[in-house]
Structure formats: structure tokens, C-alpha cells
Design a binder for these strands. Structure first.
Lengths: 160, 160
DNA sequence: CTTCGTGCAAAAACTTTGCAAATTG
DNA sequence: CAATTTGCAAAGTTTTTGCACGAAG
């Protein structure tokens, strides 16, 4: 059994159980598998992706796509997952448990560098405050060409 | 006739015509109205919003929703509009011709406030430079609860 | 005139919902 | 046990597509 002694994961499950308890909801096998899968694969999932991955990794669990949707909505409402939309692909879900990070993304090769900057975060909080917002999270992605790709060209479907 | 001597708008149209010409496409009345509406209202539109607004402002044009979708996709592929996708509200489109700005988004009602911050931009450039990236653009979205939704206590369906 | 674009309606894709049976607390 | 959850299928939504006619170049 993998991940048996994973404190971080255990903590995540506890947090989930707490959300459920506070809302009179139940901790089911399906909800556990979904959270576990989000944790183990640490990816950005479309509901469909998650559904297929779970089908593959837990063949006997037979989770319906409706349950995936219901659980992702629940996790989103309780801020346990965040959503990002990368271009045309629609909304993708990822666990919100990791320490916050931003992304520097190469438009050519797709490589990603994660970074964190306290000054920017402070400024963001200030801006939110000035607008009366209670800030819950943010997304910051810087797009460009990485050092490796600076000699290459990229193609466009539609020419400008 | 409003907007008759608007150089900025004229430039936008020229840019659009260039994209069309470069791709062997045609400059139609419908495409013009869509671009004009995006320009005049400077909002974040769902396809449906745009459709209804155009129906209201250009009753005789009778543009179909399919044309809205097709044109928005075309504009997106040619980088003339950008999109934001959030929550149940789906993907919103806005013209990309305005000076760069970032977004403060209410997770509850989906309302969007634009802002711009030179300090953050400077810091972003610095980070890119430190990593050897040539920066082309960025996306920064701050998510939270807007003053109005805080007041109405609508902000949490699920308790943590 | 030739090619592309459009509206319409139908189809596809995506998401939610009603329900009876199963599971959880 | 009572209450919630589930899978399924059906019902909503949203977005795309096929087609015949109209418009643009």
C-alpha cells in the first residue's frame, strides 16, 4: 500500500472530513478515491481526465462521471481545489493544498518554472483591500520564451 | 453616427482586416458589428451576452449565435481578444487592444474589476529576466469575494 | 463567378438532476 | 434506522457543425 505514512495526505483527508462533517455530509469511498487521485497525480484535470484516470487505476470502483462533477464542485466550493483555464481546454481542477506558487511558462516548449514573490503577493493583497475584496487565491502566469527555445520559432494557426 | 472619427477604432478594424486578408477570409457586416460591439462596450462578454446585446443594438442585423461563436473563436486565435474563464460562468471574452491590465474576480458572482500596477509589472519583468526568459505577456487574476457579495452574505454555500 | 460566411436547425459536447437502490453515521 | 450518496439515464446547457442560400472579393 503506497502513501501509507504520508502525513501531508493524511492531513488533507482530515481537512476533507472536517468540511464534510461541518456540512452534514458523508465520507464515501468515491470521495476518498477522487481526493486521493488528485493528490497522487498532482495534475490539472478536466473532469473527464479524472474520470478516465480513476477508471484505469481503480477499475472496480466504478465511479460515475456525475460523481466526479459533484465532488469537484464540492471541493471547489470548499476551496480544496482551485480551477484554472489554460486556453481552449476549458476548466481544469487542481488540489489547492500545495504551497502557493506562480508560473513562468515557455510558450514554445511548455516548460514551467515555479516561483514565488513576497513583494508581489503583498501588492496583490493591497489591491484587493483597496477594492473591498476578501482575497482567496490568485493565478499569475508569465508567458515567454525560455532560454533554450530562444533560437526556435513557433507556429500559428491563424496568421496576424 | 458615433465613433466616426475614432482613430483607435479605425486601427482596430484595420488590424482585423489584415488578419482576415492574411488568411483568405472576408470582412463581413456581422464580423464588423461584433468587433464594434466589443469595442464600444469594453466589457467581458459571454457569447450569450454579446449575442443579446447585438440583438438589442442592431435589431435588423439578425446575427445568429453560431456566428458569434465562430467570430469569437477567430478573434481568439488571432489574439485580438483574450478570455477569462471562471466558475459556473464559463469563458468571457474581451478585446485585447486595451493597455495591459489584470483582473480582480468575484468567486461568487463572477463580476470583474480591472486594475493595473506598475510595481508588479516591473517585478514580473525582473523575475523573467533572472530566469533568462523573453517575456511576451502575462495573466494575473486575483480571486475573492466582492464587497457586494460579502454584504449579502452569499459568499459561502459550503462551510469549511 | 468563385469562394467564403451566414442563419438555421440538428448534432455533439458538456454538466446537472431525478430517482431507486446502496451506503454512511 | 434516518439521511445522504451513488450510478444511471434523462434532461439541461453550451458549443459546434452541415447545409443551402446570400454576400464578398
Amino acid at each position: 500500500m503506497p502513501f501509507l505514512e504520508n502525513i501531508e495526505y493524511d492531513h488533507l483527508i482530515e481537512e476533507f472530513k472536517m468540511v464534510l462533517k461541518n456540512n452534514g455530509l458523508k465520507f464515501t469511498k468515491q470521495r476518498e478515491i477522487i481526493l486521493q487521485t488528485l493528490y497522487n497525480f498532482q495534475e490539472h484535470f478536466l473532469p473527464e481526465d479524472l474520470y478516465l484516470l480513476i477508471k484505469e487505476n481503480n477499475p472496480k470502483s466504478n465511479i460515475g462521471i456525475a460523481t466526479i462533477y459533484r465532488t469537484l464542485n464540492l471541493l471547489e466550493e470548499s476551496d480544496m481545489v482551485t480551477t484554472i483555464s489554460f486556453g481552449k481546454n476549458g476548466k481544469k481542477y487542481e488540489l489547492a493544498n500545495k504551497p502557493h506558487h506562480d508560473h513562468l511558462i515557455c510558450k514554445n516548449c511548455g516548460s514551467i518554472i515555479e516561483f514565488e514573490d513576497r513583494d508581489i503577493e503583498r501588492k496583490q493583497n493591497k489591491i484587493a483591500k483597496e477594492n473591498g475584496f476578501i482575497l482567496t487565491n490568485h493565478v499569475m502566469q508569465l508567458y515567454g520564451i525560455c532560454p533554450n527555445c530562444q533560437k526556435n520559432n513557433l507556429n500559428k494557426k491563424v496568421k496576424n
